[in-house]
Design a protein around this nucleic acid. Structure first.
Lengths: 233, 233
DNA sequence: GGGAAGATTAAGTATGACGTTTGCGTCACA
DNA sequence: TGTGACGCAAACGTCATACTTAATCTTCCC
């Protein structure tokens, strides 16, 4: 566990949060602050601060005389990076990974089209550099090095779109890519066709060809869905 | 103001949050818990709980010996519903509205395509009902009634996609639609073409025509972008 | 049997004390 | 003059306790 977060409340959060996100406490379960304080051997104040954060994520609801109630999954703030992380670490990881991948496939092609219009020269250079890095590490079981370039490529792309909502999804894409490398069946080297597509996307963005950038990125994301057996829209 | 949130910490949050989200405190500004306690006339405990929530939204960072520092905009959890609400109420409302609209335009067509495959009979009925409601209220300055149906239509559509990430964006779409009605230049009745498109989308989803549902929805969202002078991708 | 008044319970708030970290100034030394 | 170690103090972090508030349950009377 990485319960090393500074402060006791962070420690409590990193224990309680994953428990709830993983579904260990069924929705409707009530937790009492006193019991939690006893369980974690901290004061009620610390528990209250942790509960406030969980409440702000809509994971729980705190009511007087009742206690801290676990909310239904549909109410959770599923875009909160920590909620995403906790859920990916839990039981319904596959389901979560599919949801995120579908979201990614909707967003990233559009982001690529925007990037073709708004990317700065520096961002274009970074895209090309990371695409080249992917080529260089695509053979010979250099999966970790490949992942670094892949992640950086997509982060740069999303940022270059100039849309802050897109940009903030880079963590989601990073989680997807990391998940594929570390958990999915990826013992073999990356698909050469996918690597080529990244190079071509970088090229399309550099030359300002929005339609082409979008279409090529769509091919990448369709491939990502295929890996999870999601039929393309 | 709707500072009626239960509890003192909620009251503090609903004052401090919007201030920060609106940019009244430049990034890097330090707030001291003691000063805040004095300013809001509450105990430091209450301030600390509010700060914890702001910290969980990545709006601020709390460090020992330094104080509570306002973070840069790029670090905010821009998908948190409250952050969205606060920013829409603040100065850079137009910018925020554009970002959200672009996101919506990337997501909603894909969601419509998925809905054509996964929508339940009840959801299909609801879509048709709300589309009809839009038709019925599209003339004669019934803007508020129209907005209710429009919002319900898109919420149902996003939910029917079966993807939880899409479903949770219904608040974003609701904010966009409400923003258009209440602030944008919409003194006239809605565009008849847009109303027709909604009816057709409902029909396409009912008949399971994913490609058509996606394309028709894309037309709706392109229209939404045009209203904000955003050139279509 | 139903409704209202009161008891109960658990969260909410306030307060004061103490602990802990850490930015920053000071001073000595090379 | 520059650099390093040292130590102070500021601000957050934690705790214990007492009190307040409000929702739920119980009881009792009509």
């Amino acid at each position: 566990m990485d319960n090393a977060g500074q402060g006791l409340h962070a420690r409590v959060l990193e224990s309680l949060g994953p428990e709830i996100a993983a579904g260990e406490h069924r929705p409707g379960t009530v937790l009492r602050t006193d019991e939690l304080a006893q369980r974690f051997d901290v004061s009620r104040t610390v528990i209250r601060e942790a509960v406030r954060v969980l409440e702000s994520m809509h994971l729980v609801e705190s009511r007087r005389r009742v206690g801290v109630t676990v909310r239904a999954t549909e109410e959770w703030n599923v875009y909160d990076p920590r909620v995403i992380r906790w859920r990916l670490a839990g039981a319904d990881r596959p389901r979560q990974l599919r949801s995120l991948t579908v979201l990614r496939c909707a967003v990233e092609p559009v982001a690529a089209g925007l990037a073709a219009r708004h990317a700065s020269p520096e961002q274009c250079a970074a895209l090309t550099e990371h695409a080249m890095g992917m080529v260089a590490t695509s053979r010979g079981q250099q999966l970790d090095a490949y992942l670094v370039h892949d992640t950086a490529f997509h982060k740069t792309l999303l940022t270059a779109s100039g849309n802050e909502m897109f940009a903030r999804l880079h963590e989601v894409v990073a989680a997807i890519l990391a998940g594929r490398t570390h958990h999915h069946v990826m013992f073999t080297d990356p698909d050469p066709a996918a690597v080529t597509l990244h190079v071509q996307v970088a090229e399309a963005i550099r030359t300002g060809d929005a339609a082409r950038a979008e279409e090529l990125t769509r091919e990448i994301t369709v491939g990502a869905m295929a890996e999870l057996d999601i039929l393309a829209p």
